[in-house]
C-alpha cells in the first residue's frame, strides 16, 4: 500500500477514516452481528444512502424494533430509537406526525415488522404515512435462535419446523402494495449499489416507502438449511432476476426458481399528513 503511494510520489498522509465513520458509533464496533450476517451490509447501505440523499442529517433519525436487525438503531450516530418488539412503526409514526420535517427511517427485521408488528405495517401503508421502512428479511427469527417466521419459505427448516415449514410465507412486496404503499422494492445485500440508490430514492419519496432486503442469517437459518454464507450470496447472484414494475403477485421467494428483484411500485398518493391538514387545520 505504501509502495503505491511512493510510486506516485504523493505526499505521505495520515490514513483516512472509513467513509461512513462519521455516521457510526465507532466505540460500539465491532457490532454484535455474527460473521457473514447480512444485517451489517444492509445497515451500511442505509447509512450511505442517507449521506447521498442530501437530506439534513441533523433531522434524520432511525427507528428499530427488537431482534438482531433491530440493533441497527444503536449503531447509527444520529437520533435513534430502539423501541419495543413490533412497535418501530408506531414510534416512527409519532415522530413524523409530531415533527413532519423529520426524515424518519425504520430499519428492522421480518419478524418484528411482519409478525408481531404486521398490523402496524399495513395500517401505516394504508394511511400513507411518509416513512422509509427497510426490512432486513433473513427468513427467520435470528435473535431468539432461529424459529419459523411469517417469511420462512415453504419446507425450510427452523428450530420450530424441524421437518420443514408447512406454511406459506408472506410475499412482502405484495402485502405492501395491497395495503397502499407509495413505493415498494426488493433487493439483496449483494445488489448493494441498486439497494443504496433505492433507499436514497425512497427517502426522498413523500409517502410510505418500503424496501425488502434479503440478507443471510448464516448462524440460524443458513446452518439448518445447509447454506454457508457464501452459498447464500451465490443464490442471490444466480437465482435472482431484476424485473422493475413486475406484477407484485409474482414475487414469492422460492430459490428453486428465480426470485424477482427491483422497484415494483412508485406512485403518488396524498399522505395522511396532507389529508389531515386539508380537512382539519385552518391553513
Amino acid at each position: 500500500m505504501s509502495q503505491a503511494i511512493a510510486r506516485k510520489e504523493a505526499p505521505l498522509q495520515q490514513v483516512p477514516d472509513h467513509p461512513l465513520e462519521d455516521l457510526i458509533r465507532s466505540d460500539r464496533i465491532p457490532h454484535i452481528w455474527c460473521p457473514g450476517c447480512g444485517i451489517g451490509t444492509a445497515f451500511a447501505a442505509t447509512l450511505a444512502a442517507m449521506k447521498a440523499s442530501g437530506q439534513d442529517l441533523s433531522s434524520t433519525c432511525m427507528v428499530s424494533g427488537i431482534g438482531c436487525s433491530g440493533r441497527a438503531a444503536g449503531y447509527v450516530k444520529l437520533d435513534s430509537f430502539h423501541t419495543t418488539h413490533g412497535r418501530a412503526i408506531p414510534f416512527a409514526t409519532g415522530l413524523k406526525l409530531g415533527n413532519p420535517r423529520l426524515n424518519v427511517v425504520v430499519f428492522s427485521g421480518d419478524g418484528d415488522l411482519f409478525a408481531i408488528g404486521g398490523n402496524h405495517f399495513i395500517h401505516a401503508a394504508r394511511r400513507n404515512i411518509p416513512l422509509t421502512v427497510i426490512c432486513l428479511n433473513n427468513l427467520n427469527y435470528g435473535m431468539t435462535g432461529g424459529q419459523v417466521a411469517a417469511t420462512t419459505p415453504y419446507l425450510a427448516r427452523t428450530t420450530t419446523t424441524p421437518a420443514g415449514n408447512t406454511e406459506a410465507p408472506f410475499n412482502l412486496p405484495l402485502l405492501a402494495w395491497a395495503a397502499g404503499a407509495s413505493f415498494v422494492a426488493r433487493w439483496t445485500i449483494l445488489h448493494i449499489r441498486e439497494l443504496t440508490d433505492c433507499i436514497q430514492k425512497a427517502m426522498l419519496k413523500n409517502g410510505f416507502a418500503f424496501i425488502e432486503v434479503l440478507g443471510p442469517c448464516p448462524i440460524n437459518y443458513g446452518r439448518r438449511n445447509k447454506e454457508k454464507p457464501l452459498q447464500t450470496l451465490k443464490l442471490y447472484q444466480e437465482q435472482t432476476i431484476i424485473r422493475n414494475q413486475a406484477d407484485p403477485s409474482d414475487l414469492e421467494i422460492d430459490f428453486s426458481k428465480k426470485v424477482v428483484l427491483g422497484e415494483f411500485v412508485d406512485k403518488e398518493r396524498s399522505t395522511c399528513i396532507e389529508n389531515y391538514d386539508k380537512t382539519c387545520r385552518l391553513l
Binding site: 500500500m1 509502495q3 503505491a4 503511494i5 506516485k8 510520489e9 504523493a10 483516512p16 472509513h18 467513509p19 461512513l20 465513520e21 457510526i24 464496533i29 465491532p30 457490532h31 452481528w33 457473514g36 450476517c37 447480512g38 444485517i39 451489517g40 451490509t41 445497515f43 451500511a44 447501505a45 450511505a48 445485500i189 449483494l190 448493494i192 449499489r193 443504496t196
Partner: peptide, 30 residues
C-alpha cells in the same frame, strides 16, 4: 492485499463488508 497495484478503486469490498472494516481511497493521479 496481494497486488496493491491491481486495485481499481471500485469500492465493492467497502460496500459489501458488513463490518466497516475495509475501504478504498483513490490514488491521486500525478
Amino acid at each position: 492485499v496481494l497486488q496493491p497495484d491491481g486495485c481499481v478503486n471500485c469500492h465493492y469490498c467497502e460496500i459489501i463488508c458488513p463490518e466497516f472494516a475495509i475501504y478504498s481511497v483513490e490514488v491521486p493521479t500525478a
